[in-house]
Design a protein around this nucleic acid. Sequence first.
DNA 1: AATGAATGAGGCTTCATTCAT
DNA 2: TATGAATGAAGCCTCATTCAT
Lengths: 214, 214, 214, 214
Amino acid sequence: MANNIPTLFDKSLQAMNISDKQKAVLRASLTLFSEKGVESTSTSDIAKMANVAEGTVYKQFKTKNDLLQAVIGSVIDTVVPQIASEFVNETVNTEEPDFKDFLQNLIQNRLQFFITNLPQIRILIREAMTNEELRLQVIEKVTHLHLKKLANSFKYYQKQGQLVDWEFTRIVRYILGTTASYAAPLLFSGSATFNITHASQEATNFLIKGLQPR
Amino acid sequence: MANNIPTLFDKSLQAMNISDKQKAVLRASLTLFSEKGVESTSTSDIAKMANVAEGTVYKQFKTKNDLLQAVIGSVIDTVVPQIASEFVNETVNTEEPDFKDFLQNLIQNRLQFFITNLPQIRILIREAMTNEELRLQVIEKVTHLHLKKLANSFKYYQKQGQLVDWEFTRIVRYILGTTASYAAPLLFSGSATFNITHASQEATNFLIKGLQPR
Amino acid sequence: MANNIPTLFDKSLQAMNISDKQKAVLRASLTLFSEKGVESTSTSDIAKMANVAEGTVYKQFKTKNDLLQAVIGSVIDTVVPQIASEFVNETVNTEEPDFKDFLQNLIQNRLQFFITNLPQIRILIREAMTNEELRLQVIEKVTHLHLKKLANSFKYYQKQGQLVDWEFTRIVRYILGTTASYAAPLLFSGSATFNITHASQEATNFLIKGLQPR
Amino acid sequence: MANNIPTLFDKSLQAMNISDKQKAVLRASLTLFSEKGVESTSTSDIAKMANVAEGTVYKQFKTKNDLLQAVIGSVIDTVVPQIASEFVNETVNTEEPDFKDFLQNLIQNRLQFFITNLPQIRILIREAMTNEELRLQVIEKVTHLHLKKLANSFKYYQKQGQLVDWEFTRIVRYILGTTASYAAPLLFSGSATFNITHASQEATNFLIKGLQPR
DNA sequence: AATGAATGAGGCTTCATTCAT
DNA sequence: TATGAATGAAGCCTCATTCAT
């Protein structure tokens, strides 16, 4: 239901066996890293936002980088898979007889997720561009996402003659690329006015054509 | 011919009325900002790579941010338009009778450009994500790109019945999105092995279908 | 019998009216202070080695300096005198008819003691060099050592005409100085190979000459 | 003439190609390290005493430890040999016909040096006890001291029948040990009243006996 | 008595920036 | 114009110490 990273992040925090102050540190870190970037966030900034002494920031995590790992790791390890399974359950599972409806659902849902979690996604992308280690973590996680159900759906529509007979990753690539062509500008602007419904309809119309059999 | 930013950048440096050392500073800045990100590049790093005293970095540019502005500004102001017009002249001008050939040329050319200038593009993207001012500059520049020739080509193919009758920006969006779906991973990996020809063919096949009239 | 400080230290701990954990704290402090110096030993290091919570270190001793005082004080107050009396009983009491045998026994015994307790001696020396208070304590203790028996032995050998008729402290000074000339290097090296028997024989031969009457 | 470490240190500083402020930093470091020990001296202390910004402390030496190495290294590399040659020229060269006079000169001279440079010697000893690297440096330097002249003098007195026929290092050992038996207490007390002349006479009388032939 | 999370002062270090030469 | 020594604010981190449980 709640496909909102801070909320999910909070849930994953509750599962962690750390004190409330430590949770506040992680929350503040996520927020500040997202807002200003990692390098521009000082441990003193974090301490202030978390209402905590600066030393407290270092009780659980020995290094600012450890903290970054914990924050991003938590997003990656806990949130991403959670998103994926939710995505599969909410969207993909819905058995639409019509591929077009299925596709629009899918796109609208992903756009919504993207917009909701813009700050966190922004920081993930930003850091992954210069941080090798993080990059590997992200790739690892994304690679092992449980996408079987999605593949099955595709196969179903392919058998029905509603979807071109290309391999799974290629189809996913175009759906992602087209969706991203609507979403990417948001990475750079504030979350300006954006009509999700209209965008997903437009994108779907294009994709349906490009992905029809023949 | 040379659609490679460091080379173009050098050309734009020659036009600037500054000493050789100052040019070396700008060159080093471009390189280091690209490699490690702006925040992680110290002015001392720049001085070392430019073979220049620390004070020299501050002779022409009063602050590190001024330097960043100069570097990025130079890329944006001089290089981007240059790229655009070159792109228009080299690629778009070529009058292909067939939209498919036109499209593949276009995509292949842009992928090549992207790969060649990966480091500079990386830093432009990275900084634009947290730097409001830069963001506006980029948008400003990109918005006013002289794309009339491209628009004319599209109109031509539309009249020929080879291209769907959507508005210019929508068509550009899908071409960009699809191209980006092949290029984006390169932003995160090193410049892994990548078959441009194959990618541009695949992308073209998809786009042709999605963008055919009807 | 056991002229080894950690063991004696343990005995003195048993006499103290403190809990087992507190004893562990003192033991760990002795070890770490010896190994790395007081300034370079953190209370957290001590807690870890003592298998105790950080707060526990502060239950019995209010400050780190109190802890240092307790450790060194214990060595000085309890152990040094114990050593002294043992030394007197074991070595000096033995009535050797020959001064040379007496002297060699003495030196060999002290060298053995020195080597066995190198770490503790090292820290005592180190701290005494910058810690006025400790310095006074050590001097106080050493000054009041019960050395009457040793003095009596000397008088005996002086009457026998085997020992020069100098005052007690002067004779002690040369014995100590000569013995130290063999022992001191060990303070700086690890416990390199060292032949106690050979060293004590050599030292004795020299001292016998220097301390003969006339 | 001036066998005083701070003065010699200053001379060695003048030979170094560094600014006055940097010299002030090194001087302040030597003073403070000597007075309070390395661990208890903060870089801020050093900056204050040197009348310099804290950042200045780090211009020449990248680390507090580098600074320590520079200070101690300078003492070891420049001062120790200088001392040694001076010692050889002033004391050993003096051709005394009588070994006793030679010996007393030697001891008095060394005691004087020791007292004059107490603070610096103290810190050298203190640090060498826990700093392996430094230890090796000191040993290296002391080992290669130019002691040939001293050895030659000893050989001369041995031929004259004034000095026992033991090997060089053994004789040096006893002279050092006996001298140290007078000097060592000064390491721990302040430089209390100390009669150098009396001490050197007393020590000489003992050594002459212990080192006579036969 | 024991715990261990929390504290905050202070230590080491970096770095953008200035300025005399 | 170029230099590079100097600056000092600010960042990261450690550690002795406190306190609620």
